[in-house]
C-alpha cells in the first residue's frame, strides 16, 4: 500500500475519532458536571454523620442540592482569619489551593444549620498525600470548633482494601467522631492515626489501618497541616459569640 494511502487512512481515522469523541463528550458534559457537583456535596454532607437528619444514602440528588441551598452557608476564609468574599466555597479547588503558600490559600468552610435540632456544624476541607497520590477529606466540627462530629475521606489512587479503607471502611471513619483537636489547655494537638492502635481514652488518637501505614500517616499529616489553618478564623468567631 502506498504511503499516501496510509497517511490518508490515519488522517481520516483521526478526524472521525476526534469528532465522535467530541460529540459524545459534549452530549454528556452537562449532566456529568451536575453529577460531579452532587458527588462533592454528598462527600461534604457525609462528614456530618449523625448531625444530618436521616441516612445520606436515602437522600436523593435533588434533596442534596436543596440542603445546600437552604441549610448550608458557604464561606471562603484565609489563614489569617479574614473572609474572601469573591469566591464561593463549592468552587474552591483544594488541589490548586494546597500548592499555594499558606497566606494565599483559600479555605472553604461550609456551615450547616440543622433545621430540626437547631445545631450548627462547621465543615472544613483538608487535602494531603497518601501512598500513591493525593487524599482529601471533609472534617465536620461542633460549635466548640474542637469536637469532631464526623469525617469523610476520599483518595485518588489508594489501594483497594488497604489505603482505600479511609473512604470505604465506615467503622474506621466512625472512630473520628467525638475526638478532639485541642487539649484541655487549648493547644492544637490534632488527631493522630496511630500504628499499633490508639491508646484507650486518648481523645487525639485513632487506630491505624493494618497494611496502610503510609496512607494513615498521610491522614495524620493532612489533618494537622490543614485544620490549624482554620484556627484564626474560628478564634474570631469564638470572640464574637
Amino acid at each position: 500500500m502506498s504511503t499516501t494511502k496510509i497517511y490518508l487512512f490515519v488522517a481520516s481515522m483521526t478526524v472521525v475519532v476526534a469528532l465522535l469523541l467530541t460529540g459524545f463528550r459534549m452530549a454528556t458534559a452537562e449532566q456529568a458536571e451536575i453529577n460531579e457537583k452532587v458527588f462533592n456535596k454528598r462527600a461534604i454532607l457525609k462528614s456530618l454523620a449523625e448531625g444530618l437528619n436521616g441516612n445520606l444514602d436515602d437522600i436523593s440528588d435533588e434533596e442534596v442540592q436543596a440542603i445546600f441551598e437552604k441549610d448550608v452557608k458557604q464561606f471562603v476564609i484565609k489563614a489569617d482569619g479574614t473572609i474572601n468574599e469573591e469566591l464561593a466555597a463549592e468552587n474552591v479547588k483544594m488541589k490548586k489551593e494546597v500548592k499555594k503558600p499558606v497566606e494565599e490559600r483559600n479555605l472553604p468552610l461550609f456551615v450547616y444549620a440543622n433545621p430540626v435540632s437547631n445545631k450548627t456544624y462547621y465543615i472544613t476541607a483538608v487535602r494531603g498525600k497518601g501512598l500513591w497520590d493525593e487524599i482529601w477529606g471533609s472534617i465536620a466540627l461542633e460549635e466548640d470548633f474542637n469536637t469532631i462530629v464526623g469525617v469523610s475521606y476520599d483518595h485518588a489512587a489508594e489501594t483497594p482494601g488497604l489505603g482505600a479503607e479511609i473512604k470505604d471502611n465506615s467503622a474506621w471513619v466512625a472512630l473520628f467522631t467525638g475526638k478532639k483537636l485541642y487539649d484541655d489547655a487549648g493547644n492544637f494537638v490534632s488527631i493522630n492515626v496511630r500504628k499499633g492502635g490508639a491508646i484507650p481514652g486518648n481523645p487525639h488518637q485513632v487506630d491505624a489501618i493494618t497494611g496502610a501505614t503510609i496512607t494513615g500517616d498521610g491522614v495524620t499529616k493532612m489533618l494537622e497541616s490543614g485544620l490549624q489553618l482554620y484556627e484564626p478564623y474560628f478564634a474570631t468567631l469564638k470572640a464574637g459569640m
Binding site: V10, M13, L21, F24, T28, Q31, A32, V38, F39
Partner: peptide, 30 residues
Amino acid sequence: IPNEVRLIAQLIIIATLVTIVELSLKYFDY
C-alpha cells in the same frame, strides 16, 4: 486498515471505546 499501521489503528479503536465507557460512567454513575 493498512498493514503498516494496524497496531496503531487497533489502539485508537480501543482507546476510543474506553473513552466512551469512561464518559458514559461519568454520565450515568458518577
